[in-house]
């Protein structure tokens, strides 16, 4: 499996307390554990099972994912922040790997 690549899209600047859109995606096959490879062998389940977003260290949204989530999981949500700060995104793999991305968000 290629190394999963996380991506996050944020507005360049935001206003305090005004909701903005956060778009997130990570490249990952999300093997369901139901499919077979070309040799007929069952491909074991391997998915991103949890996604956590923190703002200045406080968890603001988390998602538990099942195999029914599409490959390259795409999650979009709204957020409003009171001040500038750091957004940390973490994707947790069935194999224990954690893929992370940090972004600075600036309040005008």
């Amino acid at each position: 499996m290629a190394e999963p690549r996380p991506r996050v899209k944020l507005p360049k600047s935001v206003a305090a307390g005004i909701p903005f859109t956060v778009k997130t995606r990570i490249t990952h096959p999300m093997h369901t554990g139901q499919r077979h490879d070309s040799e007929g062998a069952l491909v074991p389940r391997q998915i991103i099972n949890r996604f956590v977003v923190s703002f200045n260290g406080e968890v603001v949204v988390s998602v538990d994912l099942e195999p029914a989530v599409s490959a390259d999981p795409y999650i979009q949500f709204q957020m409003a922040v009171p001040e500038s700060g750091h957004l940390d995104f973490q994707w947790i793999d069935d194999d224990g790997s954690v893929y992370s991305l940090s972004k600075r968000i600036e309040v005008d």
Partner: peptide, 27 residues
């Protein structure tokens, strides 16, 4: 879902700062 091998899809837990709204792509 009621038609996949497993019924679960995703559970969102919303904290302060994130209104209870989300978009996701599913199988």
């Amino acid at each position: 879902n009621d038609g996949n091998p497993n019924p679960g899809v995703a559970v969102f837990t919303f904290g302060r700062l994130v209104p209870p709204e989300a978009t996701i792509r599913i199988r």
